[in-house]
Design a protein around this nucleic acid. Sequence first.
RNA 1: GGCGCGGUGGGAGAGUGGUUAUCCAGCGGCCUGCAAAGCCGUGUACACCGGUUCGAAUCCGGUCCGCGCCUCCA
Length: 497
Amino acid sequence: MSKSGHKIRLYNTLSKAKERFEPIDPDNVRMYVCGPTVYDYAHIGNARPAIVFDVLFRLLRQTYGADHVTYLRNITDVDDKINARAARDFPGVPLNEAIRKLTATTERQYQDDMKELGCLDPTRQPRATENIDEMIAMITTLIEQGHAYEAQGHVLFRVASFRQGEQTRYGELSHRSLDDMIAGARVEVAPYKKDPMDFVLWKPSDDDQPGWDSPWGNGRPGWHIECSAMSRKFLGPTFDIHGGGIDLSFPHHENERAQSCCANGTERMARIWMHNGFLQINGEKMSKSLGNFFTVHELLHGTKFGGRSWPGDVLRLAMLTRHYREPIDLSVDRLTEAERMLERWKRAMAASGLDFVEANRGACEALGPCSKLLAALSDDMNMAGVLTHLHRHAKASESGTRLHNAQRLFGSLNLLGIVSFDSMKNWQEATEKLQENADVDVEKITVAIAQRKAALAEKNWAEADRIRDQLASEGIRLTDSKDTETGERITRWEVVK
RNA sequence: GGCGCGGUGGGAGAGUGGUUAUCCAGCGGCCUGCAAAGCCGUGUACACCGGUUCGAAUCCGGUCCGCGCCUCCA
């Protein structure tokens, strides 16, 4: 049971069912998510797992306490794509230096992008190149225990050795049998493999490739081993949640799991395996060849998508308008709808008496989510249910119990990382600034409103409308409302951009 | 070829063996001198064909269509 009383249920790819989430250690809930390979700007598809698991991170922090959750997201900075890109972008520079430059810049871009999307920093973001020793140690163990073998400078994992008695365990996660995989394999099998499914743990490096000394000569790790080595180092042999995109379930996660269980002598690597669905653009798979490939940076700052840029909070909300396990279609319509929703919520909060000034920071940040919303979120992150409750609070804060619902709305949006005290403060200041900076004569407007009020009192509709139209032509919009107590007409004005 | 996922009203998107999802748009009404905003009400929806059932969009079988993975990929 969580400290705040709600029960979290999560869908486990391994069991193909929603499971009650029971942390191994409630004082240290541990989650590992596969992070980026830093060779280029993150594309918008990369943003989905970052956002989805950030929401889960926030839910876990809310449930078990902010100091009782460890979220690890790795940085893959050794990879053949990186080598190729470094050589291309930094010709004439020694490869190691070129790689360092490339990965450092790309990683910085990634961090900036994710921050703009409202993602908290994971607890740790270990780099592969800083944990080569741990990988070598793990590979050594695997060889010693007969789970791996050396062949022509390569070290390969013996897939058939991941078993329980007579029962092979390889394929349990992605739910496919070894026979199926071999039958359906379309890749040529390297001659040094004893079995077609065996995969690389370590491979030799040429002089023009990054390499590290190892018992098997100068070489570099295979892709899968880094996650096994780093998760063990920072989270231990068995942890609570392993996340990533659905495309990673095979072979990456299958391989990770085989390596870790064999090397650690454990039955399980992670208790729950979670996978987010793929992102599409206007109904098509995003790919460079289709010309519908967009980076997070382009969406945030460029004009390639829909002819304009999109704020991080809008992108985040749009990304959360579909259940994380389903494919999501990103389109201008979806973004526009998210933007309108968000705009309405912000207006509702501001109009309901929440004032985002520094003096209120502590009180605002202490506001929590509504319990029904939390229950929906805890049900395998049922965002549709979450959105329903957000709408309810927005509606109620516009009409009924205003302040209370605005507080719930803020507390909920804040939990989801869609708004924060600072983002609302900036929004509020920007709105005020728009009024202040606009080239308007407040005195004149005040007089005009008074004149219109007088005209209205005489039921001189024509004159009243003329004044309103005149102001409208100057970019000032008047809106009337009634004082709920006295019934008196209240006229507000705002600058229309 | 193998494995898997999905097809819900004009659009988005949940859920569920019998009871309003929700949001946007539309329509009707309230409020308003009129606007704007807001409020209330409103939809022949659940790919197709069979089967189980008192009752299925929800369970079972089949068909069609779309998609993903099996190769770097979030």
